[in-house]
Simulated assay, not measured.
Amino acid sequence: MDTPLAEPVAAALINAVNRGDTGYALAGRLPEAFAGFAARQYGWHPDASAARLVPDVMSGIVEVLQIISEPGDRVVVNTPGYPPFFYWLERIGRRVVQSPLAVGPDGHRLDVDRLERDFAAGARVYLLCNPHNPTGLVLTRDELTRVAELADRYHVRVVVDEILAPLTYPGARHVPFPSLDSPAAARSIALVSASKAWNIAGLKAALAVPGPAAHADVAAIHEEVSEGAGLLGVLAAEAAFTHGDPWLRRLITALDGNRRLLAAQLADHLPGVGHHPPRAGYVAWLDCRALGWGDDPAQVFLRQGKVGLSSGLRFGPEGRGFVRLNFATAPERLTEAVTRMAAARAQADERPA
């Protein structure tokens, strides 16, 4: 995001550098800080003593999968999906089962019937991203309860990437999966971090937070994995979760304004681009198939408009003809980006067939 650091986070980092506190990381008070944040924001009271420090959410997912599954096991991932899911699961020898989201008039939603078929076909783990990257989908309590019922029926473990949860917009509510009252939720493991919401991803600190029946699995994460986290990341995340609520509220208000601005700009200047405002996060998933630019319209926007967008191809087969746009920037820069994208379309339309 193009945003200054939250004041408490900046102060924690400056103080650490001033006192020369740049050694190896321990979890310190970070688990308690997150538990307090989860209680305030979600009404969830995770057991802080059971959480384990990991360098980041993706590395935490990899460690958890290597504990609760075996090489060759099937891991279900909703598509379009976060690109590192695909190559990391392949790297550790797990078989990715792509379970496409459904698309309706209000945007993407979970296809529960497809998910059940994928579970019934022999899945071992469901790697759920909620809130979802790249679509911004936030699953409701009823949808998550249905997922838990299916996971119980088919003996599927649930691992949840909840990194975008603090960035949920008004009108939606994040429900931590381990907070549900079900055996599958009790066996689940959530990966959480302050990295996206407070813009500190490069500082490296996240937590694996188990449901009540998954404590032993998280405890099995080797200590050397925790030591790969950054001390500055731990200190920054602790400050964010403890003192960062007011800054986060202001950030969400600003991002919500940009979310609405983007929708208006696209409607005015690129009406052929399909778009449903995300319910969380700061990226928009744009359907450019009507432009007729093939599978990778990001290349055209970059070449013709000098606007850098994420290629939808990286997010799985459902990303063909899509791009992902980061709108966490100044409103005038966002407006310029859409203006350039519209100019790129005009140039492409003017070319002789």
Results as ranks from 00 to 15, higher is better:
residue 195 S to Q: 05
residue 215 H to V: 00
residue 151 A to H: 09
residue 236 A to R: 00
residue 177 F to E: 11
residue 124 R to G: 06
residue 132 H to N: 10
residue 161 D to P: 11
residue 168 T to Y: 12
residue 239 A to R: 00
residue 143 E to S: 09
residue 191 L to T: 12
residue 122 G to W: 02
residue 182 S to G: 12
residue 203 L to C: 13
residue 165 A to I: 04
residue 235 L to Y: 00
residue 138 V to M: 10
residue 121 A to R: 07
residue 175 V to M: 11
residue 234 V to L: 08
residue 228 G to M: 01
residue 204 K to N: 02
residue 187 R to W: 07
residue 211 G to R: 01
residue 213 A to M: 09
residue 176 P to Q: 11
residue 127 L to V: 12
residue 200 I to L: 07
residue 185 A to Y: 10
residue 148 A to K: 03
residue 237 A to I: 06
residue 195 S to I: 03
residue 138 V to T: 14
residue 135 T to K: 04
residue 191 L to C: 13
residue 124 R to F: 08
residue 177 F to M: 14
residue 127 L to T: 15
residue 129 C to H: 03
residue 177 F to R: 15
residue 174 H to Q: 09
residue 196 K to P: 12
residue 171 G to Q: 02
residue 186 A to I: 03
residue 166 P to H: 00
residue 214 A to T: 02
residue 172 A to T: 10
residue 189 I to D: 07
residue 123 A to Y: 03
residue 225 V to M: 09
residue 121 A to M: 11
residue 227 E to V: 05
residue 203 L to Q: 10
residue 180 L to M: 09
residue 150 L to K: 06
residue 151 A to M: 11
residue 195 S to K: 02
residue 162 E to R: 06
residue 160 V to S: 11
residue 168 T to D: 12
residue 178 P to S: 10
residue 122 G to A: 04
residue 233 G to H: 02
residue 205 A to M: 05
residue 193 S to C: 11
residue 205 A to V: 04
residue 213 A to C: 06
residue 239 A to S: 01
residue 176 P to I: 09
residue 217 D to C: 10
residue 172 A to P: 12
residue 180 L to H: 06
residue 184 A to H: 04
residue 176 P to E: 13
residue 236 A to L: 00
residue 213 A to L: 04
residue 142 D to C: 05
residue 183 P to Y: 11
residue 143 E to W: 04
residue 143 E to Q: 13
residue 215 H to G: 00
residue 184 A to E: 03
residue 170 P to L: 00
residue 235 L to Q: 02
residue 223 E to F: 13
residue 162 E to V: 06
residue 175 V to I: 15
residue 213 A to N: 04
residue 230 G to H: 04
residue 161 D to S: 13
residue 239 A to V: 02
residue 188 S to I: 08
residue 128 L to K: 11
residue 204 K to S: 03
residue 128 L to R: 11
residue 178 P to R: 05
residue 177 F to C: 13
residue 201 A to Q: 15
residue 138 V to H: 14
residue 191 L to E: 07
residue 231 L to T: 13
residue 121 A to I: 06
residue 226 S to N: 03
residue 204 K to G: 04
residue 138 V to F: 13
residue 216 A to V: 02
residue 140 T to E: 06
residue 213 A to G: 02
residue 130 N to V: 14
residue 134 P to G: 09
residue 210 P to V: 00
residue 159 V to Y: 07
residue 218 V to C: 09
residue 183 P to M: 10
residue 127 L to D: 14
residue 127 L to R: 13
residue 153 R to F: 07
residue 153 R to I: 07
residue 202 G to S: 12
residue 126 Y to M: 15
residue 143 E to Y: 08
residue 130 N to G: 11
residue 217 D to E: 14
residue 165 A to P: 04
residue 156 V to T: 11
residue 136 G to Y: 08
residue 156 V to G: 09
residue 135 T to C: 07
residue 211 G to F: 01
residue 206 A to E: 10
residue 148 A to C: 04
